[in-house]
Amino acid sequence: MVTKNKKPVSKWSAQVFKTLKDADIAQVSYVPDAGHADLISTCLADDHLKTTRLTTEEEGVALALGAWLGGERSVLLMQSSGVGNCINMLSVIQETRSPLLMLVTMRGEWGEFNPWQIPMGQGTAKALEDAGVIVYHVDEAGDLTETVYAASQIAFNAYRPAAVLIGQRVVGFKDWRKK
């Protein structure tokens, strides 16, 4: 097992957190993914962010709409599998032409061990694009903060749904030969 406790927050998570603050994000909702663990705990520890734990990812799409109707920017964190749970709710974002910022940690795309992650991981970008979401895929950690910032700007200034897919190369995959 990977040990979770007392590790320093990964560099990319710390940078993305700062970027979200720079983008005036006030609300964060999430269904956990191991890849997002550091970012989630950093958000939970921040006194000014309003965090919402979801039972399923589509709740976060509706929550983001409500937050923006009330004048607050939000971000929705999920694993690639969760994208499949969002599809119909994304129609509401498209029809109301509202902002939505999603950060999606990828599974099923790079060095994946669990075959059950492949169907949704391989379909993530296509499913989002078909639902009208602007998709950015990041495979270089160095590109991440800039991409998250750019996605936040297109979301909130151009009133569009945007997703940043954080590649499994960035998040790191578990090598199952090294038990």
Binding site: E59, W68, G70, N88
Partner: peptide
């Protein structure tokens, strides 16, 4: 009034986002 014409299952969560913002 915010009228939903779609997004079945999303009314309560839309309201939660709004409640937290306002």
């Amino acid at each position: 009034n915010f009228y939903l014409w779609g997004g079945m299952g999303g009314a309560a969560m839309t309201a939660l986002g709004l409640a937290r913002a306002q």
